[in-house]
Design a protein around this nucleic acid. Sequence first.
DNA 1: GATGAATGAGATTTCATTCAT
DNA 2: CATGAATGAAATCTCATTCAT
Lengths: 210, 210, 210, 210
Amino acid sequence: MRATNSNGEETEKAIREAAVRVIAKRGFQAASLREIAKEVGIRAPSLYNYIKSKEKLLYDLLKVPVSAMIADYESLTEGVTDPVVLLQTYVQVHLNFHLNYRLEVFIGNMELRSLSPAHYRVIAALREEYTGLLNRIIDDGVKAGVFHAPHSRVVTLIMLGMLSGVCNWYQPSGAMSAAEMMKLHTDMAFRMLDARSAVPAAKAARKRSS
Amino acid sequence: MRATNSNGEETEKAIREAAVRVIAKRGFQAASLREIAKEVGIRAPSLYNYIKSKEKLLYDLLKVPVSAMIADYESLTEGVTDPVVLLQTYVQVHLNFHLNYRLEVFIGNMELRSLSPAHYRVIAALREEYTGLLNRIIDDGVKAGVFHAPHSRVVTLIMLGMLSGVCNWYQPSGAMSAAEMMKLHTDMAFRMLDARSAVPAAKAARKRSS
Amino acid sequence: MRATNSNGEETEKAIREAAVRVIAKRGFQAASLREIAKEVGIRAPSLYNYIKSKEKLLYDLLKVPVSAMIADYESLTEGVTDPVVLLQTYVQVHLNFHLNYRLEVFIGNMELRSLSPAHYRVIAALREEYTGLLNRIIDDGVKAGVFHAPHSRVVTLIMLGMLSGVCNWYQPSGAMSAAEMMKLHTDMAFRMLDARSAVPAAKAARKRSS
Amino acid sequence: MRATNSNGEETEKAIREAAVRVIAKRGFQAASLREIAKEVGIRAPSLYNYIKSKEKLLYDLLKVPVSAMIADYESLTEGVTDPVVLLQTYVQVHLNFHLNYRLEVFIGNMELRSLSPAHYRVIAALREEYTGLLNRIIDDGVKAGVFHAPHSRVVTLIMLGMLSGVCNWYQPSGAMSAAEMMKLHTDMAFRMLDARSAVPAAKAARKRSS
DNA sequence: GATGAATGAGATTTCATTCAT
DNA sequence: CATGAATGAAATCTCATTCAT
């Protein structure tokens, strides 16, 4: 039952998609509103019917992926306590976003500095929260004896580096499927924690069938 | 032993250092020559006694670290064929640069797109060469049975992500020393290749004492 | 019937007129967009709502007069073959522009070198075409025995020099009327071709009354 | 008996020649001291050992040709009163300079506006003096009945246009020799004054042999 | 006599943004 | 909702010129 104003909504979506493409290609500072508008098929001043400012547009773009990853992870792990399953889920959520929203994530890693101080604090806090989720998984796993990692905070950061690099080079048209990518990254995560015996695939299967 | 307080070589070095700082802080596009000049203590037009253009300055800055990493690795591994030692050396060189030239490396990962097409090709080729070095190490190790990795190309890229993330967050003033960082990353690399029995430290020691 | 006092077309015309004045006064390189904008009553960046670049502005300014002179001459001489009438028409068209569009023509003679290579080729070709028109008139007149000139190409160039100098010094407020100027230049042209008996005025009158 | 300081004199001459070339090619404003210095083989600041300023350099360059033309004409016509011979001499001097010092003259016609007001007045006065010489020749010839021209002032300017255009297109490598150019321009000048019976060549020969 | 270093002035141009229509 | 017109701010870069060496 969409009314005639669906046009406006479509335009708003088109603007965000164009903004992601252009900012990913040029960087936030070098991305001009004119170019974004051109991709949408309107003139630059018309953007202001949809956005408040260029910086606010960036803020909105950056807020979505990290918020969504946190939400996805939390909804998928409600009541779950097994560190092995939690890690597997974390990687799954992370990879899902880094493959399917590659450019959004890419921007999120690059353009934090272009935010206003106030907006920066919000996004940085969300990212820290997201990092903390993995840190806790690792801590719990180490305590439980299934993971082996000294300096869990640093290992968390290193693992996030490992899990995030994909947004710099992945091409959906490449040789490896998304499923394979997810499997490979999951294996690497468990290897980094020396969690061989965890047999994550089996556990995950068990959980799903329950 | 010039009497004046303006020395061309010193100024040139100061410009490069200031450029690295400012570009790392703001991004290349947002880094203004005025700000760089101000950090050096001169006026913006004076920069042109030392640089040909802003883009050429970036090119020069980006060329150094990747070239140096390649050169360091190659000089350290002359005649070496053991994949375990080679990997250890690679990680050592990589971390050395990512810790000691953190900002330079950071820029190198971010600002490729700001290069002119011709300069981009040069840097991209160097980076591909550097990636290829790790890829070959892994291939050889897999063939020799000491490493276990399917899809060595993808594992190479994932591992480089793991090894490079450090330039996003490392602070020399942090709790962990550079030596510890190097050790930890080396361990992680070997774990990712499931090379437990490699005992790299021992092997490296053996080589050095030969 | 717009209510605002800013009308795009008027502004565009004002810009071109101001540009002609300022460029004629200072030369293209020394003419700053700021000064042109000031004459129009806007700020320099606003010029870019109307022009693509300073060089393109010059190109547009230079293209008009020579194109118009060619078009005028051709439309006035359709079907005419008498060299005497043709020459008279050529001088008439030429003087008309050199008196009424003195500054435009002046710029056209001075600033060819400030064009980009591609634009230079276009204008140079038009000017050569315009020169060729006079050359052909002289050639035909010599063949017909009414003009006497050795080396018609060189005489063509010398005559164009004679006919064009006026844009360097003519002032509409001067003692001599435009009609007198035209008559004088026509006489001089016929004298240069030793075409005394041609009685051009009579011939022209005859043609018009036909 | 040139001493070792001939080097300095040579440099000064080289600077003037380079300046003429570069200014003729680019226009005064667009001609940079750097480019002039480069043609000489020195750096731009070294020019200031030879010139006072860029504008003064232009002034010196512009003063030479018109002064020399006046001087040449006056020394060649001392005691001469025959308007036919005087005109012939004027054209000869004029063409001599316009062919042999083509670029200098070209600059002189173009760059008056780039002079400071004070310098402009000096050069403009010289040019007016030079124009006056021709004007007087024509006046005297008309009075004597050998020339026929109404409005001698305007005819003077038109004739100077005719005689000067050559510096816009003449190439020494062209098909026509300097002597032929001079003859052709002389003929055109006499034709413009309807001075057929003047038989200038004969008169000139007579004068020389006297 | 020559120059490396420096600079103030100023050029063209891009950009995010505003506002009246 | 869209945009033509306008603009202040600011960017990179060139230039003539000065000065100490």
